[in-house]
Design a protein around this nucleic acid. Structure first.
Ligand SMILES: NC(=O)c1ccc[n+]([C@@H]2O[C@H](COP(=O)([O-])OP(=O)(O)OC[C@H]3O[C@@H](n4cnc5c(N)ncnc54)[C@H](O)[C@@H]3O)[C@@H](O)[C@H]2O)c1
Ligand SMILES: NC(=O)c1ccc[n+]([C@@H]2O[C@H](COP(=O)([O-])OP(=O)(O)OC[C@H]3O[C@@H](n4cnc5c(N)ncnc54)[C@H](O)[C@@H]3O)[C@@H](O)[C@H]2O)c1
Lengths: 224, 224
DNA sequence: AGCCCTTTGTGAACCGATGCACAAAGTCAG
DNA sequence: CTGACTTTGTGCATCGGTTCACAAAGGGCT
């Protein structure tokens, strides 16, 4: 029992970040009626190296069959369980502007066990509106709404200037998972996970490489 | 001259990804009239380790003064130049749905040298509309629009099913930088840079850690 | 039943990134 | 001009992650 037990503890962060990728590929295969898949094929579908995929999966236990591959349905279940997608998660979106609206209307979350359970904004013009079937509530109600709806993940889609303050408030009511779109570094206790998405940074990284490609070969003229 | 020359080649990828972060912090400081900043302070503002920050900056050259710190204005310029933000980049957004609209209306790009130069969609209902002051053009015009406007970065905000096809088309006209929001692995020649943003993946990573926090200490009951 | 073929799971080398710790460089006060 | 103090820039140990390569495991064919 101590030898066949999956290594529940200590899944590398890099592996965790790839599991959703595998899951997506597996869902596609399940839909197409594929019963089993080799590490080679699944890796190709997820755009990674096959040895890496096997090592990743080995962290959750030995779910493959040598000579055959992995059972698609079973693997979907195991990865879902590992990621905690067998339960559903109540998400609150704070800030219902351009971005918040897009997120609220997006169907792709629900399909993965995430439920937008609340929309919150400060603008009296917006509060009370119905967006994606949800009533927009006032920021003053933030703490009450989070508790009432059992929200455990908060998405911040508000201006940078307001982000830290709202962040502090949701942390104070016990939220420990935050997805931040505002271009600021949030300071939180180390028990809280913050993931940030900054589109501007992505573009800047692309620009850097683009510049290299364009100027690279010619740069020699400049640096000589 | 060969010794004081900045190491133009071979800036680590991890460093490149942090430069925009430093730049953002520096812009804030410049606005507040700060003239010089120590690695310690800048690192704190960017949320990183100060040794890491110094090593990152050392890749672009020796722009600091020992005993004093870094000149804010000068550093802003050097990082901007390194990232290629001294020129402006024409960006096309393909797919003007929930997300595409939010991006088109977002002001945060322009301020960093990115100019939304074109909006493209397939839906006749949307084509011809004016969004954020731009005319939405038909997907049939994709290649022509990219060439005419000198677009060098393409943002894909279209359904997953359409992403690979559109991707192939923009690559065929010479685009080598793509920001992809669709939940698919795009296959491109290795000369092309694709960065992906997948909000669903971010939520899944948060869910994983959230589950750990909640179930971790109790998990023993289950696994015993 | 036995053999061959496929594919997993992992040991080990490798690689890039991180962070400590400190000498070298430079400032500034007196 | 000198000496004390501050802060950079980097050598080095370490760490997490990637990749190769292969022995062990299992399935299926004869
Ligand atoms: N729109 C994009 O494509 C995009 C891209 C990258 C980053 N961002 C970032 O995402 C955030 C939101 O962007 P947006 O374009 O949706 O902005 P927006 O101005 O359209 O919307 C912001 C919303 O937040 C609300 N708000 C302001 N202060 C609040 C507070 N204290 N509490 C609750 N709600 C508050 C406003 O009423 C508004 O509805 C910003 O930080 C922006 O920098 C947006
Ligand atoms: N909205 C979100 O918050 C969100 C979050 C995560 C991921 N995404 C992803 O971003 C993409 C866009 O999402 P959305 O919510 O804006 O979807 P959407 O359906 O609102 O918009 C998609 C737009 O793309 C257009 N389109 C479809 N096929 C096209 C083609 N071949 N060429 C040009 N245009 C085409 C449609 O006409 C539509 O206007 C999807 O792949 C989605 O999975 C969206």
């Amino acid at each position: 029992m101590s030898s066949s037990q999956p290594r529940d503890r200590g899944i590398p962060e890099a592996t965790v970040a790839r599991l959703p990728l595998y899951l997506r590929a597996l869902h596609g295969m399940a839909e197409r009626g594929v019963a089993t898949v080799s590490s080679e094929d699944l890796a190709a579908a997820a755009g990674v190296n096959s040895a890496k995929l096997r090592k990743d999966l080995s962290h959750l236990g030995s779910y493959g069959t040598r000579g055959v591959g992995y059972d698609v349905e079973y693997l979907v279940y195991q990865i879902s369980r590992e990621l905690g997608l067998t339960q559903d998660w109540a998400v609150a979106i704070v800030g219902v502007g351009n971005l918040g609206r897009a997120l609220a209307n997006y169907g792709g979350f629900v399909s993965r066990g995430f439920r937008v359970a609340a929309l919150v904004d400060a603008d009296p013009e917006v509060v009370g509106d119905t967006i994606a079937g949800l009533n927009v509530e006032h920021i003053d109600e933030l703490e009450a709404v989070i508790k009432r709806r059992g929200v455990s993940i908060v998405v911040l889609a508000i201006p940078a200037a307001a982000a830290q303050e709202v962040c502090d408030r949701v942390v104070a009511v016990g939220v420990t998972s935050i997805l931040n779109f505002a271009p600021v570094v949030l300071s939180v206790p180390e028990t809280v996970d913050v993931r940030k998405v900054d589109l501007s940074i992505e573009l800047q990284i692309l620009a850097f490489h683009e510049q290299r490609k364009a100027g690279g070969p010619l740069m020699a003229v400049d640096s000589q």
